[in-house]
Design a protein around this nucleic acid. Structure first.
Lengths: 344, 344
DNA sequence: CCTCCTCGTGGAATCGATTACACGAGGGAT
DNA sequence: ATCCCTCGTGTAATCGATTCCACGAGGAGG
């Protein structure tokens, strides 16, 4: 592969001049410039990004560590992050933590070893050694979606409180009173917050959230299934289940169906995070939609601000409720009927 | 950030010795080794991968350029690729082409500029200049899923011919005779092959595939919708629609539903590429499943073989039909009834 | 006509690693 | 005792860029 020396030789100039042309530095004669450009063209020369990074101490690369690639929410996030980064002249390297702190740390270290300019993380846990180290090491960093309390890093996320209130209102109107939640891991902020918001909203209607109605999930489909089976096995099962993310909702749907029950007739189901597929499930699922694309773009902007010496700030965007059919027919069409419970 | 010099200074040895310890070269005294290790620990030293790559001319990184990250098939592929690569000591940088040749080229060049050790591509088109250049430039390369005929690069893919035959048999048994297909872009191998396989299978049953029943899609949901609307507007609409990928199937489902028709009662639907969500759609969709994970792993193995001087070979794995309910009830349960057609 | 600046250019240092080569010490064979 | 090999180590070259500094030519100003 041709190097800058080859170009210099062919153009009859020094490597310094070639470099100047490439970085369009002003003081290069028109003549030299054309000769260099011709040589570049002829040799199909492309600057070696590795060498350049070593010298300039910047890679124009962002690292993005997400909790789970197979989760459509995170793929969409990744996509918008890459788009915005590209628009700003950066590349993105994605690391998939698969909800495992050790894998997350592996990616963080690998990314740091490659001297990425900045790190975007949606932490899987409350702070693995690698993560904390990175935050302390001074690498520009921004949290997206989830964050770690007490760590001084900007957070770009969406606030679901209002949407959760809307959801509870919706469920209440439809006659549901015994509401349960499949929570995310307590180690994640989103895991905790959604439960808090749910409990608070319930409180506004004078409803309690008994411990039996709080299932511990891990943001994967399997846990949604297990927790829901638990709910269904209760003496007094909930009338509505709220899954704290889309994958767990899917698991819940499985469990409900496996019992021979139907949504929403036998039990209502709602999810946090809306995804295109929810329109097509049987029934279409009522969900709380985050402005995912905007989140990704805002996170990149905040990170690049930090990298380039400006002050990237935290951003909080509102989520909104998208009503479909998984909680029952809208009250306008039929009066809320007492919810039946059937156990096979 | 601490460099090898700092470690050397603190351990009281030369950088050469530090390097030897780090790469566990045999001729280092036990004493020097412990001192170096202690210094590494104390300084929290991590070798600079950029510098190392420049010197050794290898990055231990693979590039993966896929056609569309939002397509669950490709996310699963990406996930398995990363897993296998990690197991073999490589990192992966993913580039999302979004089915756009220009974006694909952008990623290929960026990846090449970073001197990745090998490239895994699922080409979006019949050969953009960048792709062809990369293939010629001698970078180790392997095609996954899709490939470019005439380019001498191993291909890891799955063969859907048998599964398509099974699908056609299934549709035929259920009484469907007018079968249509939503094709992928003609520039892609998978776009063409699936149509060919379908036509061939139809031929075995004495059925033709008229031009009006071949819709031109682009592997995105929108095109599936448009093509299906076209089919539905025909004087004699098809009784079954086969979408050449999962996203277009989703679009088809939308279009069918928008017309007030029902699957499978009014029209049957099947898709190439199976994804977890197909179990939960209304109705569950009959699909042809590729061994996606195995494909990704095989592709990485082939690529790493090439990189490390062995001969990575092409691999073809069979796909299989997964029958669900979107084409009608299995014949064993009820006799195939003449398919109705209803236009609103 | 001399001096000073600006402009274009090249030489060489530098980034942080790896590694060929040289060298001195010590041990075994003769 | 001498020679030779092996072992551990350090010095320095190298990878491919960027960039500081020096230098010569030429133009402007006195």
């Amino acid at each position: 592969m041709a190097s800058i020396k080859d170009v210099a030789a062919r153009a009859g100039v020094s490597v310094a001049t070639v470099s100047r042309v490439l970085n369009d530095h002003p003081s290069v004669s028109a003549d030299a410039r054309t000769r260099v450009l011709a040589a570049v063209e002829a040799l199909g020369y492309r600057p070696n990004a590795v060498a350049r990074s070593l010298r300039t101490d910047q890679t124009r690369t962002l690292g993005l560590v997400i909790s789970d690639v197979m989760n459509p929410y995170f793929t969409e996030l990744a996509r918008s992050v890459e788009e915005e980064a590209r628009a700003l002249g950066y590349s993105v390297i994605i690391g998939n933590a698969d909800e495992r702190p050790d894998l997350q740390d592996h990616h963080v270290t690998t990314l740091l070893d490659r001297r990425i300019d900045g790190l975007l993380v949606s932490p899987t846990d409350g702070g693995s050694p690698g993560m904390l180290g990175a935050a302390r090491a001074g690498t520009p960093m921004v949290f997206v979606d989830r964050w770690i309390p007490g760590v001084d890093v900007p957070v770009v996320r969406s606030d679901g409180r209002a949407a959760v209130r809307d959801l509870v209102a919706h469920l209440y109107e439809l006659g549901h009173r015994r509401l349960a939640i499949i929570a995310g891991p307590a180690a994640t902020t989103t895991g905790r917050e959604r439960v808090d918001a749910f409990r608070e909203a319930l409180g506004a209607y004078g409803l309690a959230l008994p411990d039996a109605y709080v299932g511990q999930g891990d943001f994967r489909a399997g846990s949604g299934r297990r927790v829901t089976e638990g709910f269904l096995g209760l003496d007094e099962p909930p009338e509505a289940v709220f899954a704290a993310d889309n994958l767990m909702a899917l698991g819940a749907l499985d469990a409900i169906r496996a019992r021979g029950l139907r949504v929403p007739d036998d039990i209502a189901l709602a999810a946090f995070d809306d995804i295109p597929w929810f329109v097509h499930t049987d029934p279409p699922i009522t969900a709380i939609a985050q402005p995912t694309g905007e989140l990704g773009r805002a996170a990149v902007r905040a990170l690049v601000d930090r990298i380039e010496g400006r002050t990237g700030e935290s951003v909080t965007l509102p989520a909104r409720l998208v009503v479909r059919r998984s909680c029952g027919e809208p009250a306008s069409q039929e009066p809320p009927s007492p919810v039946r419970r059937s156990t096979p």
